[in-house]
Simulated scan of single mutants.
Amino acid sequence: MDRPGLADFLRRRRELLRPTDVGVAEGPRRRTPGLRREEVAMLAGVSTDHYTRLEQSRGSAPSESVVAALARALRCTVDERDHLFHLAGLSPPPRRAARHVSPGLLGVAGRLVDVPVAICSDISEVVWTNTLFSALMGDVGTRPGRASNITWRWFTEPGVRDRAPEEERDRLAAAHVSDLRATYSRRAGDSDVTELVDDLLQRSREFRVLWERHEVAVRRSDHKTFVHPEVGAVELRCEVLLTPEADIKLLAYFPLEGTDAARKLDVLRVIGTQTFATA
């Protein structure tokens, strides 16, 4: 690990960015060039203390997940991301888009502030969400390992389905499997895909039954209803933007026409991720 080099690179990348580049309000009396340390830490989902120590060439070595999160927060290109990994004494991940979100795609996502947005890999790993998506679905993108994988959680955590109406659950389960089957066919032999499928086959009988149907369909749009504990059912139209390599996708959820979804999203934008106890 090159501690001085890592510290210098992090600081220079931070000072190059402006708050508007990453969707952060500038606020009055900003003296720091670029972003503040606490802003980078917030965007990366790490503690301010841990990030500060990295910029000061001290503290514990960062994990692969922390380095990947910092690369996204600092809007690094793939080359810059690989350099960041080398400075941290780690081997860069494979050069697939699913392992890194381009600054351009993050820029597009950051401007969709009035609708829920998530960026996922082609095996449904959530790598980035905006505030409104977190208010609607919880902080899925901040969870470690398989806990950030939508398909894995759907078939292994029964409580996840509570946010979908009962009458839609069978259709959504089949859609999860047919989308994963398309990725499995396209990337046959890649360990991340085969390991996910093998583990799901072991853990979920429902997944095994659906997998054996051999239904294949890449989801490019969908109609979903989310049941939120505070605002109730929110009917949304999901549009999927696929990258040219088709191994990362941006999901934007727009209010379904003729429903009260837009009003409910406005309420969620105000209350954020707060929860309210019943008196």
Results as ranks from 00 to 15, higher is better:
1 M>H: 13
4 P>G: 08
13 R>P: 00
13 R>D: 00
14 R>M: 00
14 R>W: 07
20 T>C: 12
20 T>A: 15
24 V>G: 06
29 R>F: 12
36 R>A: 03
39 E>Q: 04
52 T>C: 01
53 R>L: 05
56 Q>I: 07
60 S>W: 08
61 A>P: 04
61 A>C: 08
62 P>D: 08
70 L>W: 12
73 A>W: 04
76 C>G: 04
94 P>M: 06
95 R>W: 09
96 R>F: 11
104 G>C: 01
107 G>H: 13
109 A>C: 06
109 A>H: 10
121 S>N: 08
135 A>D: 06
139 D>L: 14
144 P>L: 07
145 G>H: 07
145 G>C: 01
145 G>L: 01
146 R>A: 13
149 N>K: 06
149 N>P: 08
152 W>F: 06
164 A>Q: 12
169 R>S: 03
169 R>N: 03
174 A>I: 01
186 R>D: 05
186 R>S: 10
187 R>Q: 09
191 S>E: 15
193 V>F: 02
195 E>Q: 14
200 L>H: 08
200 L>Q: 09
201 L>W: 09
204 S>G: 10
204 S>F: 02
213 R>I: 03
215 E>G: 03
217 A>G: 00
220 R>S: 11
221 S>R: 12
222 D>A: 12
224 K>N: 05
227 V>H: 11
228 H>S: 04
230 E>W: 09
232 G>E: 06
234 V>G: 05
237 R>D: 13
238 C>H: 14
240 V>R: 10
243 T>Y: 00
243 T>E: 14
245 E>V: 03
246 A>V: 11
248 I>L: 15
249 K>N: 05
250 L>S: 01
251 L>W: 15
253 Y>N: 05
255 P>W: 12
259 T>W: 03
262 A>L: 02
263 R>D: 14
264 K>V: 02
264 K>E: 01
266 D>F: 03
273 T>V: 10
273 T>K: 13
278 T>C: 04
279 A>S: 13
279 A>K: 07
